[in-house]
Amino acid sequence: MNNPKKLIVSHAPFWHIGSAVPERNFNIIIAALPAALMGLAAFGIPALAVLSLSVASAVGWEWGVNALAKRKNTVGDGHAVLIGLLFGMLLPAAAPWWLVVTGTFTAVVIGKLIFGGIGANPFNPAVLAYAILSVAWKTFFDFDAQLIHYSLDFTPFYPLTAAKAFGTRAVAGIPLTELFFGWQIGGIGAGCGLALILGGIYLIARGFVRWEIPLSFIAGLFITAALFHMAAPEVYAGPMFHLLTGFSLIAAFFLAPEDSSSPVNTTPMLIYGTLGGVMTMLIRNMGQYPEGVIFAVLLINLINPLVDKIRPKAIGKVA
């Protein structure tokens, strides 16, 4: 039975749907790009510098640490690019270079690689990095203080801080359309609601993100904000305002549904998303920070393994 032809022998199944990890990551990057570009339009060249440095340094850290640890080089899967891009999109346009580089180190190395690389991170790396850095360097994450030297042709203050400090009246003058098209102070890529929603719809339609998490996140946030608003309209701004400011939409479509830190079963996804939205509003309205998304996302990342235990019974199991 000797045959010169070498045939490929592998295990069933012999078909594959054709999806792959790099494809998945690059599609999420494509979906995030419109929002990033809108950020560039709003904040100009400094934003471009922050984004480029963020992506480049994230890739650099991943490559460097993999080389140092003598592991397989995983830069090619695009995950480092994605982390760098998302992290850059959260930063203010005036972020100094060292903040960006430290941030991507925190995200890629501490957020992902030390847990074992892609798929093993318990937290969304970009959000973890943002949380650590914003605790350590508060002033650099104060959007008002950072962008004070910029002349912008739209409302020149961070809506959430204003709403928190001075109540609804301070932000009543900001038209919602301005927020929707991204003419607001905030993270580079987090401002433009339109672009984020388009990106999110693209991801959902192509099956890279399930609808449960984004929609339940938005619903949780919207309903909680509406309840607060109804209770005290003078103190707490309305639900649309909260939906379109800060990191709400980028979290709903890009941060909360991150693969390895979010649940996979339907009911857990709904719980996870809703809890994220509710926590965001609780922190914004009752907590110390004007923006609650970052810690809300970390919190729901923490409960992810727990809620994901709610799963349908396997066939043939009675208990």
Binding site: T102, I114, I132, L133, V135, A136, W137, F140
Partner: peptide, 21 residues
């Protein structure tokens, strides 16, 4: 600008871990 995270408790773990590594 000092990176205050490092002198806080979680920073100790991260720093020790990286040095162990």
């Amino acid at each position: 600008v000092p990176f205050e995270f490092m002198v806080q408790a979680p920073g100790a773990f991260v720093c020790l871990g990286l040095m162990l590594c």
